[in-house]
Design a protein around this nucleic acid. Sequence first.
DNA 1: GTGCCAGTAGTCAAGTTTGACTACGACGGG
DNA 2: CCCGTCGTAGTCAAACTTGACTACTGGCAC
Lengths: 203, 203
Amino acid sequence: MSAIRLLVLGAVRQHGRAHGYQIRNDLEFWGAHEWSNAKPGSVYHALKQMAKEGLLRAHDVAPSTVGGPPRTEYELTPDGDTAFLELLRAALTTIEQKPDMLTSAVGFVVDLPREEAVALLRQRVTALEEWRDEVTRHWTPHGAPEELGHIGEIMRLWVYTAESGAAWARGLIERLENGAYVMAGEGGRRRDVLPPGAENPFK
Amino acid sequence: MSAIRLLVLGAVRQHGRAHGYQIRNDLEFWGAHEWSNAKPGSVYHALKQMAKEGLLRAHDVAPSTVGGPPRTEYELTPDGDTAFLELLRAALTTIEQKPDMLTSAVGFVVDLPREEAVALLRQRVTALEEWRDEVTRHWTPHGAPEELGHIGEIMRLWVYTAESGAAWARGLIERLENGAYVMAGEGGRRRDVLPPGAENPFK
DNA sequence: GTGCCAGTAGTCAAGTTTGACTACGACGGG
DNA sequence: CCCGTCGTAGTCAAACTTGACTACTGGCAC
């Protein structure tokens, strides 16, 4: 699964109710078109698909501002909310190779309570350390690392990736433990979404 | 474009002539099923598609070992060889987010002359440094980095990724400059492919 | 006042990916 | 001898992704 579902669910969730173009705009605000497959087709497809699966409820909006194609607004169902949180937790703990999932999750990390976010990131660190060890064992079972030839470089790349990924996660854990950001259930205001009428400063 | 084409072209190239299952087996030997989309369907699709595009020549093999589905062997055309080298060069220099492309390229890096490989990796380092600077400028145009809230964490993740990616590339450059591995045009034998009849030690 | 571009909102066909499925032979245990 | 299962080789429909395309509005320069 790519990051598109997490992104779309998270964006709809923050709006309460949104139509496709608003989502696209939000994702552009986050720079998501640069690090994920947030193309128009993917966004609309994800909205329709998740509506069919009961994660979103679709509202056909009367064409009040006449003209243009028919708009549809979406909002999360309880199932959609559950699915969003599940995806978010999985994205923080699972170490897959595609970084768009992790990037998306970082964008929504404040939707979790602080303690849970920290715990999930610790799980991530543990998983990365285990993965590094397993990769090392898997590729050097014979004791001689140079027997692999240049294929050993693939192993080196993975080990390096695991270690720097763990170091990054430790940094975020530390910032969160020192009270950075306003997390779920902590009150306060956020500006994850463009306020209505505001111009996109990154456009 | 995903890494599947590079992987399939490279595998066929090393065999000279190969059918789908051999490719799948090679990719499993390299652990590619863990870090790329090297699923059966993708492999066979890529073979057919590239045959249609003239990068591979297909040979229908008479069903000598009777029974089983009809096999088709493939070999690279000159266009296929060109395409492989182009993909390989692009994979080493381009900094996209998906690491399967880079991992695949590392697996084939010895198919390039040593000097070219080093030059391409230097390009990669430069591109990563530029990207890091551009990301920094793009997200902190106002001088105040903390105005971004937790969205700034996305920036931090990218900057971290760029820096550790550059550090890794510098390491490989150093090893190559110190004469590691047997590169294209340097003679010597390699064992990138399972020798016929040998068992796969990572199975 | 009209031609043109930017922005808004979404569709569509073509291509790609997924992962479950088919089909066949060999081999070993009961 | 029959059953299960492993290995070999590949297919298929369903889902997803891509990027070009449509269609409409409003502004503004000429």
